[in-house]
Measured scan of single mutants.
Amino acid sequence: CHSECLGNCSQPDDPTKCVACRNFYLDGRCVETCPPPYYHFQDWRCVNFSFCQDLHHKCKNSRRQGCHQYVIHNNKCIPECPSGYTMNSSNLLCTPCLGPCPKVCHLLEGEKTIDSVTSAQELRGCTVINGSLIINIRGGNNLAAELEANLGLIEEISGYLKIRRSYALVSLSFFRKLRLIRGETLEIGNYSFYALDNQNLRQLWDWSKHNLTITQGKLFFHYNPKLCLSEIHKMEEVSGTKGRQERNDIALKTNGDQASCENELLKFSYIRTSFDKILLRWEPYWPPDFRDLLGFMLFYKEAPYQNVTEFDGQDACGSNSWTVVDIDPPLRSNDPKSQNHPGWLMRGLKPWTQYAIFVKTLVTFSDERRTYGAKSDIIYVQTDATNPSVPLDPISVSNSSSQIILKWKPPSDPNGNITHYLVFWERQAEDSELFELDYCLKGLKLPSRTWSPPFESEDSQKHNQSEYEDSAGECCSCPKTDSQILKELEESSFRKTFEDYLHNVVFVPRKT
Rank of each mutant, 00 (worst) to 15 (best):
R291A: 05
K162E: 05
L186Y: 06
N141W: 14
I214L: 09
S173L: 09
G125P: 01
S166N: 08
N141M: 14
T241L: 14
G139L: 10
S333H: 06
I134E: 09
A374Q: 03
F220G: 15
C317Y: 06
V325P: 00
W352D: 15
L349M: 05
N387H: 14
F174K: 00
E109G: 15
G295Q: 15
D326M: 05
V128I: 11
A149H: 08
L153T: 13
E148T: 11
N190H: 10
D206T: 05
V381H: 03
I327D: 00
I181A: 00
S274V: 03
L331M: 13
T213S: 09
R369A: 04
G318S: 15
L392C: 09
I357R: 00
S401G: 13
Q245N: 11
I114D: 00
I378E: 01
K234M: 01
N340Q: 14
R165A: 14
S333N: 01
Q121P: 05
K209R: 12
I232A: 10
T213E: 14
I327K: 02
G256W: 04
C261R: 03
T361S: 11
G183K: 01
L153A: 13
A195L: 10
I379E: 08
H233K: 04
Q354T: 05
W344E: 07
N200A: 05
G189K: 03
K234C: 12
W282K: 00
R291K: 08
P225V: 10
V359R: 00
R347F: 10
K267F: 10
K209Q: 06
L252H: 06
A316S: 09
E187H: 09
V359W: 00
D315S: 10
C126R: 00
F268N: 00
I181V: 11
Y191N: 04
N200M: 07
W344G: 15
A120G: 12
D115H: 14
K360Y: 02
W207K: 03
D384A: 14
K226M: 10
L298D: 00
L266A: 01
N141G: 13
S119G: 13
P304T: 11
R176Y: 09
R370D: 07
V397F: 12
T127D: 04
Q199E: 15
D393E: 07
G217K: 03
E156G: 04
T353I: 14
K409S: 12
F311V: 09
G373P: 05
V308R: 04
V170S: 08
L151H: 01
D257W: 08
D249V: 12
I232P: 03
N190S: 09
R164F: 13
R281H: 09
I250L: 08
C317S: 05
E187R: 10
N224A: 01
G373M: 02
V324Y: 11
E148K: 09
P304H: 10
K301H: 08
I405L: 15
L180Y: 09
W286R: 09
K301P: 00
F221M: 14
G373F: 03
I405Q: 09
N198V: 03
R138H: 14
E236L: 06
N130E: 08
E264W: 13
Y160T: 09
S338T: 12
F220V: 05
S400Q: 02
K162S: 13
N340Y: 08
K209A: 12
R202Y: 11
L108T: 13
P288G: 03
K103T: 05
N141P: 11
K360A: 13
Q121F: 10
F296R: 00
K242R: 09
E246V: 11
G110Y: 12
I135Q: 00
K253D: 03
R165L: 04
I154L: 09
G189R: 04
I114G: 00
S260R: 10
Q216S: 10
N387T: 09
L169C: 15
K267L: 08
N320S: 06
T383R: 00
V390I: 14
I181T: 01
W205R: 02
Y160R: 07
V390R: 14
N141R: 07
N307W: 09
H341M: 06
K267E: 02
C317K: 01
L133Q: 00
N136S: 06
K253A: 07
F221P: 00
K177R: 10
K209F: 11
T383M: 03
S192T: 01
N255Q: 09
S319L: 12
Y380A: 02
N136T: 03
G373K: 03
A385P: 13
F299K: 09
K301Y: 03
Y167T: 14
G313I: 13
G125W: 07
R176L: 04
F290D: 15
V170M: 04
C261L: 03
W352S: 13
N399D: 15
K360H: 01
E155M: 06
R176K: 13
R244T: 08
D276R: 01
I379R: 07
K301N: 13
E283T: 13
Q306A: 14
Q403Y: 15
F290L: 04
S132Q: 02
D292I: 10
G313M: 13
D335W: 13
S274E: 10
Q403P: 00
A144L: 11
D367L: 11
S230Y: 01
I135M: 06
R244E: 06
A385W: 05
G313Q: 13
S338H: 06
L331A: 14
E302Q: 11
G140M: 03
S401D: 05
E184I: 10
P287K: 04
C261F: 03
L201W: 05
A303E: 02
K277T: 09
S116D: 14
K234P: 02
K242M: 12
E246R: 11
D384R: 06
Y372L: 12
E246S: 06
N130W: 02
I357P: 00
N150A: 08
P287M: 11
D312V: 06
Q203Y: 14
Q354L: 13
G373Y: 03
P410K: 05
G110T: 06
S208G: 14
R281T: 09
G139P: 01
S239M: 15
Y191L: 05
R369V: 10
I135F: 06
F358G: 15
W205T: 01
A168V: 04
G243M: 05
G189S: 06
S319Y: 14
S239L: 11
L143I: 15
E109Q: 14
F290K: 03
Q403M: 08
R124V: 10
P304V: 06
G217M: 01
P304E: 09
I129N: 00
D377G: 05
N190I: 15
N198M: 06
V170C: 06
W344R: 08
K103V: 08
P394W: 15
I181Q: 00
D292Y: 07
S260F: 02
S116Q: 02
E262V: 05
A149Y: 06
G217F: 01
L201V: 06
D367S: 09
D312T: 13
A316M: 05
S269F: 00
E246C: 04
L204R: 00
D326K: 05
K162W: 12
H341D: 10
S173P: 02
L331Y: 05
T254V: 04
K209T: 13
F299I: 08
K407S: 07
V128R: 15
N200V: 08
W282E: 00
N320T: 13
N150T: 07
R291W: 09
G295K: 14
L204D: 00
R347S: 07
F221N: 01
S269I: 15
K242H: 06
L280T: 12
I134A: 08
C317Q: 05
S208H: 06
N200P: 02
